[in-house]
Design a protein around this nucleic acid. Structure first.
Lengths: 193, 193
DNA sequence: CACATTGTGTACTGGTCAGTCAAGAAAAGG
DNA sequence: CCTTTTCTTGACTGACCAGTACACAATGTG
């Protein structure tokens, strides 16, 4: 009962996510969050409690949208494991370089920003990192079973190294637009599988 | 002529660097910068002009200290290339996990923070990234020449992939204390050389 | 000992910050 | 219709923000 909410939860979180994505946690002001979500201060605080809790929800929303899209990409059957992982990386190069806002990966941004040390934020980011690690590890295991990949190294080790290269790639893409340098990372990482 | 400065430039930049390292650019207040550097607002602004310019200088100071230390580590003659690069990564795992402030790499933090899009900051970070890339590439070239490393891939490509894994590693270390996971990255990256 | 020049200390600026509060609006249950 | 509950609106809070202004101190030069 009570007065029903006049906003869509996901729409508000999408807007808040975008603001945090563009500005970071510290750089996002509650005023801009109100403007971009369309909510008044009262509604926003009534619904989400604080800027920090809204941030946490925005990160979860990121996981449910951008993160899930990537995991789904990896889950779809592909001709080769190497091809799937290469496409994953090429995809983010294209996306990161095409984005004029140079926002990169919200999870990575959250991890490196000062408030990423917050237990809750760190846990949310870690979960996204772990999800990607798992998805890559699964692919590597499949690749080793089908004979596409070498079997002389533990799949988890291979997956973790590839995952590291992936986040490193996204960090590099933040400060360079040198596509060839980024593609070198991809080719090297794929060759190492 | 004129009144001489009563502070050491490097000491002030060391202090400012530490503040930015702990708090990020947005999270660092000019008040804390004054307190930790020991300078009054007047002196600080007279000497550095603005918070942003101080940030730029702090990043340069980081390159000249922490960054240079790593480059020197790689420049020193080592028994094997793989050993040198392994030690580089093990070193940051030890350092990152031992740091209670979880500050990580200031250059990486600067790259991912919103203000890293500033042309000046991006250029400073890119230079540090490039320096590491060059140092790794040189080592790879040496390793290939001595026969320690495989020669079937361009040194630059190998170097860039290793560099990516390195920064990915530092990103992972921000949110996890799982040493084994981080060591997997190292072993995988070294094995891929 | 003036004087120009530069550095220092501190009070002050207008603006913005995250968050609160109270009054009213919209629903459900009686 | 009245009450209860929840949401909305927007004014308001005190604290803090980056940056400035200005009086004063310390130097080199003539």
């Amino acid at each position: 009962m009570g007065r029903p909410r006049q906003f869509s939860d996901t729409a508000v979180l999408d807007a808040a996510m975008t603001v945090f994505w563009e500005r970071g946690y510290e750089g996002a002001s509650t005023q801009e969050l109100c403007e971009r979500t369309g909510l008044g201060r009262g509604s926003l605080y009534n619904a989400y409690g604080s800027k920090h809790r809204l941030y946490e929800q925005a990160i979860q929303r990121y996981a449910a949208t951008a993160g899930a899209r990537q995991l789904q990409m990896l889950a779809e059957p592909a001709a080769t494991v190497k091809g799937a992982l290469r496409e994953l990386m090429i995809g983010v190069i294209d996306a990161d370089l095409a984005d004029p806002g140079r926002r990169g990966c919200l999870a990575l941004n959250a991890a490196t920003e000062a408030c990423g040390r917050t237990a809750t934020v760190a846990a949310l980011v870690r979960r996204q990192f772990d999800d990607l690690e798992q998805a890559i590890c699964h692919l590597v295991t499949v690749g080793q079973r089908t004979g596409e990949l070498r079997t002389d190294r533990p799949p988890m080790q291979v997956a973790r190294t590839f995952q590291s290269a992936y986040y490193g790639l996204r960090a590099l893409a933040k400060v360079t637009a040198d596509r060839q340098a980024l593609l070198d990372v991809v080719e090297g990482a794929v060759a190492a599988l």
